[in-house]
Design a protein around this nucleic acid. Structure first.
Length: 939
RNA sequence: GGGCCCAUAGCUCAGUGGGAGAGUGCCUCCUUUGCAAGGAGGAUGCCCUGGGUUCGAAUCCCAGUGGGUCCA
């Protein structure tokens, strides 16, 4: 018996008369009340047996089931928690989407650094898993969007200290008991339940776990999260890594809402149970009208399929043949009936996914979660096309959004429409490209090359099957290689230079690491520095005692008992200034925070144990404060103008300007920019106080929502909130006392930093005046040059530009005329080249090539060879040869250009060239007749 | 965050180191009872911006701007 086996020896199992058994089919260990049971009950060892035979007291809708679960646990002393957004990157940076309820509490709460919102708690957490996207609709059981119902309890060991929660709430026995009781409340015969031992591993944590099986389907997973990865650990888990026990141990359960709803209804597929209205709407909309006989056939096929262990779309394809045979129908007929329905199931699921994503404020983009939304949206659009759903996609998403209770439905629809328009343009562009390519290939017997296919997909977003469809309409064939997507992937594996870069970065990182470790040793000995900068943000002087001085390669790191210097963080740069004693003064050029200890980087050693006076560079700090508060105001104004989906995607405060990156699905127009600026300055004029408070984080979340975490999630039981007008944000930065202290805010530019992310660059206070004046100066100077008033500059500039273009045209025309006159008017002299009447004009006139060219052409039209040279800037030749003269202009030019140290060339009838040696120009021209004669003779 | 692609007439694009092009649209005229259409002629352009290479850059190189796309 391995160490882990003991973990499953529960008192509760013993009291209830469970036996531990080994599955005769797969060897898994499981617990059951049924003495006669031989297998673990889960596919492939056993099949589903709930379809058409639920065994629950009643059937439930999604909403009813959710309520049953939550109120059951509420009745058992759990607090009901509102679900978190599906955009998990709003509180953690390691994942994009919420995939389970435990995600809500990682990493700060699971590690014990922050308390849970309630303990114990229950929740129904919307989650999105994109791994199975191609199986959705096909297998009858996969969904991309789902809700994970869960109850959680957070515990710490008795001897553990310093955690945000203390002691044991409950652990394994109670968890299993709750599970039994909940099943019982649904009217289930408990002898049918099976608890399979199934150790759980994920994200650096692990623990024993039980899978709860009922009638062939897994309805819950009870995870006892209690270990962390540790090479020295005593437990070896199925992933091959070693783990050791943590001080915290957490009950992490998962009850899939969709599965419970499905099982309660016993329908052939999960989709019919979960969104029946949407399915019937889509069926009607797509004109899928089955006869009673067909309907019955589909139902029987789905039931058979449901009872098979179909975990992949490919398996469905092979299973289809067996099902068809069993039902005594043709497999193609069955496929014809089933496929449209499968597509509709997927559309319903994807629309729900989109509603969650967009409703929770994910903005489509070419990066991160925004890209995931875009992928799902485009996929859904393609599905609606294949099955002939005519209802617009924004309406489908809206149906789900309404059901899910989102209030920002107008924005959701707007984003869907904007995205669809973008997709349409992409397809237009790609389609044209494919047509063009197809026409080229149509003349050959070759199929369109794989290289082209990859290029079309990777750079132009054209799916290979779409390419095939379009190409075939235009008479070209396409062969899609089986390993197409791995070929695309190969294109993304890094070239050698990138590897070198990476190594470079690695060394730097290692250096920093060493640096960090070294400091860490010092820092761990020291108490956290008291932060004075929050007490009175206007004070710029303080007194402190030097606790330690760490000598660095360059300069010193000074640690004080308390400080007013703000360490770099939250996009706000560090303060600078000085630390002085009676004897010395050290400049502070950087300030950093490590584990609560603030390090002042100085150029001098103030002396350990000394009493120092700190003086902060007040101008710099005040500018930073004004910019920081202004950043909040700009963000708030942008949200007001552009919509509630606007979220901070990054920010950097500065002395002269700051920037705020916000999520938005279109370019910010000039009018919108000006409106944001107007609102921002109105807030400044209102001169409202900027208030800081330190509420309990869960109280803050409850009251203001997750939007307070614009700049990341701070640790701790209490968090610092900054109120600016109606805007509330968790923020560690320093701020002005009243909005009026900012003076004014000037938006300087907006740029698109990524698709879906707009950068707003602005200046506050003095810096705003400076910036405005610089622009004004530039405008004034331009106005002076044009000799008009600044307001007339745009019209005047446009007029000048137009005139300038007109003059260019006029000059070109005049050059043509001049060339004509030169050629005809006897201003040139013809020389005979040979006895057959071939003549040439050899001339130097210092003009630009344009003019030379025009003249040469005119001369050639008079049936004379033209050899023209110009000494303007460099030596330039133009040679033009009439059609009937057998001389290669290119060869002549090369000969001539060689004599001025350059080169040249061109088509046989017209060539140009030149070289840097202007002094040799005349001599070269003098040789021109000879050269021409030679060229003629060698023919 | 990274890779790749694109920027030329109002629009769609060709041109890949030496003379800026096609189709469509536009203007004028002709044909036609009118429409659809046909014929003839014409005007279109900082060839995205700034550097560099070159005797010479729409074309090659670098940077920037704007857009697209795939991947994590």
């Amino acid at each position: 018996m391995s160490e882990l086996d003991e973990e499953y020896q529960l008192d509760y199992f013993e009291q209830e008369g469970f036996t531990r058994k080994e599955c005769v089919s797969c060897g898994a260990h499981f617990w059951t009340r049924d003495e006669a049971r031989k297998t673990c009950g889960e596919p492939p060892c056993e099949q589903y047996s709930f379809i058409g035979n639920p065994g629950f007291d009643a059937s439930y809708t999604l909403e009813e089931m959710r309520e049953e679960f939550l109120s059951f646990f509420e009745d058992n002393d759990h607090e009901r928690i509102d679900p978190y957004p599906v955009a998990a990157n709003r509180w953690r940076d390691d994942v994009l989407l919420t995939q389970a309820s435990i995600y809500d509490f990682q990493p700060l709460i699971t590690s014990g650094q922050a308390p849970p919102p309630a303990n114990p708690l229950c929740i129904s957490q919307p989650s999105i898993r994109m791994d199975d996207i191609q199986n959705v609709g096909k297998t009858g059981r996969h969904t991309m969007a789902f809700e994970m119902m869960a109850h959680h309890a957070f515990n710490t060991r008795e001897d553990a200290e310093g955690y945000a929660y203390q002691g044991e709430t409950y652990w394994k026995d109670r968890t299993v008991q709750y599970c039994d009781e909940f099943f019982e409340s649904m009217g289930v015969d408990l002898t049918e339940l099976i608890y399979i031992e199934y150790p759980w591993v994920g994200g650096g944590n692990a623990g024993p776990a039980l899978e709860v099986i009922y009638r062939g389907v897994e309805l819950a997973t009870l995870v006892f999260l209690s270990m962390e990865e540790d090479p020295e650990g005593e437990y070896e888990m199925p992933d091959g890594n070693r783990y050791s026990k943590m001080d915290t141990y957490i009950v992490d359960t998962g009850y899939g809402l969709e599965r419970w709803t499905w099982v309660s209804q016993g329908t052939p597929t999960v989709y019919e149970a979960v969104y029946p209205e949407m399915i019937s709407f889509l069926r009607e909309n797509a004109g899928i009208d089955l006869t009673d006989e067909e309907d019955a056939l589909v139902h029987r096929a789905a039931t058979l399929a449901g009872n098979l262990d179909i975990d992949e779309a490919e398996d469905m394809e092979s299973a289809r043949a067996d099902i068809a045979e069993e039902l005594g129908v043709d497999v193609d007929r069955l496929r014809e009936l089933m496929e449209p329905l499968e597509t509709i199931y997927a559309i319903a699921d994807h629309s729900r996914t989109l509603a969650y994503m967009l409703g929770d404020g994910i903005v489509p983009s070419n990066v991160e979660s925004g890209y995931l939304v875009r992928m799902v949206l485009r996929r859904t659009k393609r599905l609606t096309n294949t099955v002939g759903v005519s209802a617009p996609l924004d309406e489908l998403v809206d149906m789900q959004a309404e059901r899910l209770g989102y209030t920002n439905r107008d924005t959701i629809r707007d984003i869907v429409r904007t995205e669809l328009e973008k997709y349409r343009e992409t397809l237009d562009r790609g389609g044209r490209r494919v047509r063009q390519l197809a026409e080229e290939y149509a003349n050959t017997d070759e199929p369109i090359s794989t290289t082209e296919l990859i290029e079309l997909y990777d750079s132009h977003g054209m799916q290979p099957d779409m390419v095939a469809e379009i190409a075939e309409e235009h008479g070209a064939s396409v062969e899609i290689p089986d390993d197409f997507f791995s070929l695309v992937a190969a294109r993304h594996t890094e070239p050698s230079s990138a590897v070198a870069d990476e190594k470079q970065t690695d060394t730097t990182a290692t250096q920093e690491e060493t640096d960090h470790d070294d400091l860490k040793a010092h820092v761990s000995e020291l108490p956290p520095t008291e932060q004075l900068y929050y007490d009175d943000q206007d004070r710029m002087e303080f007194e402190a005692i030097v606790l330690d001085v760490i000598e660095r390669e360059e300069g010193f790191a000074v640690v004080l008992d308390q400080t007013m210097f703000y360490p770099e963080g939250g996009g706000q740069p560090a303060d600078t200034g000085a630390l002085s004693t009676d004897d010395t003064s050290a400049n502070v050029h950087d300030v950093q925070q490590r584990d609560g200890v603030i390090l002042h980087w100085t150029d001098d050693d103030p002396g350990k144990g000394e009493f120092v006076r700190g003086q902060i560079d007040a101008t710099r700090r005040k500018r930073l404060m004004a910019h920081h508060t202004a950043t909040h105001i700009i963000g708030h104004s942008a949200r007001e103008v552009l919509g509630d989906h606007v979220r901070q995607a990054g920010a950097q405060k500065g002395i002269d300007s700051s920037r705020l990156d916000v999520t938005h699905y279109e370019r910010i127009s000039r009018a919108q920019r000006q409106e944001i600026e107007r609102i921002a300055n109105r807030i400044v004029r209102d001169n409202t106080p900027v208030v800081q408070e330190w509420p309990d984080r869960h109280v803050a979340e409850e009251q203001y929502g997750f939007d307070i975490y614009q700049g990341g999630i701070p640790p701790g039981t209490n968090i610092r909130l900054i109120h600016v007008d109606d805007d509330v944000q968790a923020c560690a930065g320093t701020h002005v006392g009243r909005t009026g202290d900012i003076g004014c805010i000037k938006i300087r530019s907006t740029e698109r930093v990524q698709d879906g992310v707009e950068r707003i660059v602005f200046s506050a206070g003095d810096a705003a005046i400076d910036a405005t004046q610089r622009v004004e100066t530039a405008l004034s100077e331009t106005a002076e040059t044009l000799d008009v008033s600044p307001l007339e500059v745009p019209d005047t500039a446009e007029r000048f530009f137009e005139e300038w273009k007109d003059r260019g045209k006029r000059i070109d025309a005049l050059k043509e005329e001049l060339a004509e006159i030169r050629a005809h008017g006897g201003a040139t002299e013809e020389v005979a080249i040979n006895g057959n009447g071939t003549t040439a004009v050899v001339e130097r006139f210092d003009a630009d090539v344009e003019e030379l060219r025009a003249t040469a052409t005119a001369i050639a039209e008079e049936e004379s060879v033209a050899v023209l040279g110009s000494g303007q800037e460099s030596a330039q030749f133009v040679v033009a040869v009439p059609e009937k003269v057998d001389v290669n202009a290119g060869e002549v030019v090369r000969e001539l250009a060689d004599r001025v140290g350059g080169g040249g060339g061109g088509p046989p009838d017209f060539a140009q060239g030149g070289g840097p040696d202007v002094d040799a120009l005349d001599a070269a021209l003098a040789d021109a007749p000879t050269i021409l004669q030679q060229k003629l003779e060698t023919r």
